[in-house]
Design a protein around this nucleic acid. Structure first.
Lengths: 97, 97
DNA sequence: TAGATAGTTCCAAAATTTTAGAATTATCTA
DNA sequence: TAGATAATTCTAAAATTTTGGAACTATCTA
């Protein structure tokens, strides 16, 4: 098992908390728990935000290491890093909501 | 077991994530994991922030339901709601950091 | 190749959060 | 009761985050 410096872990945890402290991003992650992957088109349909705003949220979640993008032609799809989510927030996927 | 509406649970979770997304507050909670309770005096010693700033952080953590205050004369001490922490962030107390 | 569409980047405005000085409240003690 | 100290509240400034229009890049297709 990889070890990691304490403060480094904290910084990662804080970045994850910050990522999930926004209602839009929180909901995005929740949506991804129910399926394998989701595309920008679906996210943009779910939230009434501009493309640049959505793009910003993708990046925050990516920087937190929670989402990874897959390009398919002109479309982008996102997948949840469930292992990482489970490592930092065990049980988050089961939370009744 | 008390049931709670989905969106209500989300709102609570988001408030907790927001509370822990600030380095000072994150560290405050971490400190409280190691002891029964801590006073403002100790917190003010640990962080180089003004009293009003610290007071603000106490309130955010209280509003998230993570801290509860105990007054003893002119001093205030805070205690962690470990049960609540465990409910929303299971394993947070064991995270190696 | 030209046109259309998906998504990002750049930029600045709006909104929110963090911070601290000043004033206030509450409690202890001499 | 007067003075001292702990903490909160009020207020406004500083910093950060969220948002969207405009311009740009990349890819598909007619």
């Amino acid at each position: 098992m990889e070890e990691k410096a304490s403060s480094e872990f904290s910084a990662e945890a804080i970045r994850i908390f910050k990522a999930l402290s926004d209602p839009t991003r929180y909901q995005m992650v929740r949506m991804l728990l129910n399926c394998n992957e989701l595309g920008c088109v679906e996210f943009e349909k779910a939230f009434e935000l501009s493309k640049p705003a959505m793009s910003h949220h993708y990046r925050v979640l990516e920087n937190a290491g929670l989402l990874s993008p897959r390009k398919e032609g002109v479309y982008v799809y996102f997948r949840l890093d469930r292992e990482r989510l489970e490592r930092f927030l065990p049980g988050f996927d089961q939370a009744h909501l």
